[in-house]
Amino acid sequence: MTTVSMTVNGKSVSGDVEGRTLLSAFLREGQGLTGTHVGCDTSQCGSCVVHVNGAAVKSCTLFALEADGAEVTTIEGMANADGSLGTIQQAFQDYHGLQCGFCTPGMVMSAAALLKDNPKPTEAEVRHYLEGNICRCTGYHNIVKAIMAASGQDVVAVAAE
């Protein structure tokens, strides 16, 4: 066991981990932050996306010890200080961007990473950026609409509607 320390959603945390402990396991089992979902555990689905030093990464494909000393943001860190939903989260609710909600934490974290680099993406850019996030329920249109709305742009009827 080795001690790992990092900042998660602004709070300093530490815990004892094995070499093989994944960041997703450290967050969920070590820190009780079960908002980060593990859908596939094979780096395919994106439900486990968190930010490590500002970059979106799949927490199921990163060892906790590789994030030693890092700033980590998870879905639990996306709400406003008063506990109300953050802009992207609210847009997902307003535009029905989720059904079962399993993919949603990863979708919101990927969307946040996109909007940080590209505050006014086109619809095509949103779809391209979400290539690593799989949703089995929504068919993606409402997720794309929610992200367009969260970026402060008009939400137009999207293709195939």
């Binding site: 780096s43 994106g46 996306v49 970059a55 979106a56 990464v57 799949k58 494909t61 990163l62 990927s110 990473a113 996109l114 950026y129 290539e131 690593g132 996030n133």
Partner: peptide
Amino acid sequence: IGDPAVRNR
């Protein structure tokens, strides 16, 4: 290559 999260690692 892959997707944004893969490219970040």
